[in-house]
Amino acid sequence: MKKCLYVVGLGVVLWAFNAEAETIFVSLEKDNSIAVVDPLAGKLLKTVAVGRRPRGIALSADAKFLYVAVSDDNTIKKFNADTLTELADLPSGNDPETFALSQVDKRMYVSNEDDSQVSVIDVDKNTVLTRIPVGVEPEGIAVSPDNKWVVSASETTNMVHWIETKTYTRVANTLVDPRPRALTFTADSKQVWVTSEMAGKLMILDAKTKQIIKELVFEVDGVTAEKIQPVGVLVDKKMQRAYVALGPANRIAVINVANLTVEKMLLVGARVWNIAFSADQKYLYSANGLSNDISIIDLEQLKVIRSVGVGTNPWGLAVKP
């Protein structure tokens, strides 16, 4: 065994920073399974079969349940997050790609890509409350932390649809740049950050006026503009830094929220898709779709520590503290 100084050293450093063990669940689109990764050791622990074409993945607020959208089985599966035993199939509607969980009232909002609609599910009762028509190929979806709004981005219609949670009606549509992929609310629920894959852009929408208030175009040295295709986007709780995965540019852009500038470009695996924070937000994990691995990023040093092979086409991640 080439047990080397560095690994040991790194392990010690990691241990010092993060004494609590975390588990990352990664949905593997082409392996019909999820990977379970220990980020501390940088190790793939196991792979568990979940169903056909798993994509969207998230944990319940109390981290007891894991939900995985298995698109080709036309359902979202509910698992016990500790044992990974299957508990239920949620009536997600056709081809669920991804979904958002409300941390407040146990509602789940599902993007049904083929049917151009958003399904609202009561996860406890396992029933569909309503289905809301949106644009063609809805993908990115998010619930505001104050639980007032759900936003859904449709990739082909190129719009962000605003759904009021009180009435479950779509009350506004914002036209954005082509192929909006992912979106997220800021912690104060005042802004929505949306990425446009084709325009290589980040757009910030004001939740009050529903208008684009700021835009940021990404550039990477030595990489042509076509390769810069922003997908996953996250803003930290303190609203100091935001992170955008740039797809085939193999980079994660680190953005200073205050002045909206790119602080650093972090090199990760090929075609980086979705990203997730560790529970303490000291680390960021990225699913790299084409290189079949996830990258682990130390956010204090802004450094990619390591990349761990997980399986074919990692799509999304959920982090269990």
């Binding site: 605003w162 779509r170 009350v171 914002t174 036209l175 954005v176 006026t209 684009i212």
Partner: peptide, 9 residues
């Protein structure tokens, strides 16, 4: 039916 149409552009 859907009244409000907000157009950012």
């Amino acid at each position: 039916l859907f009244g409000t149409q907000v157009d950012a552009k």
